[in-house]
């Protein structure tokens, strides 16, 4: 099983939730379980020892919904409620995939590929 490597950037104050770093390089499995309940136990590196049998569960290509889960559980350092709400980004946070609005790709359902660039921008300071 393979992993994909993504470049993830945070802007507009969101970086404070991610160890004050704006740019991150994140590796996630290329395929993840369809059932989101299994994501908590799913390893970030599939080849690691004790990895569950991928053939036993229905799988799908990694998407933005999985990336959000991965960021919350493995990268976020403070106050997850300021980043996610009801399984997606909080209102006021925008996402771009390869320089395009993620709404064009189906938001959480947008599929991710190796070397994709994902950007999260907070608009919570409006004026």
């Amino acid at each position: 099983m393979a992993t994909i490597t993504l470049s993830v950037n945070f802007s507009g104050g969101l970086e404070t939730l991610f160890a004050n770093r704006t740019a991150h390089t994140v590796s996630i499995p290329a395929r993840v379980p369809v059932d989101a309940a299994l994501w908590d136990t799913w390893p970030a590196a599939p080849e690691s020892a004790g990895a569950p049998d991928a053939d036993a569960v229905t799988m799908k290509p990694a998407d933005m919904a999985y990336l959000l889960h991965h960021l919350r559980t493995r990268v976020l350092t403070a106050r997850p409620e300021l980043f996610l709400e009801h399984g997606t980004v909080r209102p006021g946070i925008l996402a771009l995939i390869n320089d395009a609005d993620w709404e064009l790709e189906g938001e959480g359902a947008a599929l991710l590929h190796d070397e994709d660039e994902v950007v999260f921008i907070s608009t919570l300071h409006g004026g």
């Binding site: 507009g12 104050g13 006021g92 921008i121 608009t123 300071h125």
Partner: peptide, 21 residues
């Protein structure tokens, strides 16, 4: 809208120095 402002600022590489007031 705020979304358009955010995209403008990102694409123009503008630095947002303020914080939520």
């Amino acid at each position: 809208g705020l979304k358009e402002c955010a995209f403008w600022a990102w694409w123009e590489k503008l630095r947002i120095v303020g914080e939520d007031r």
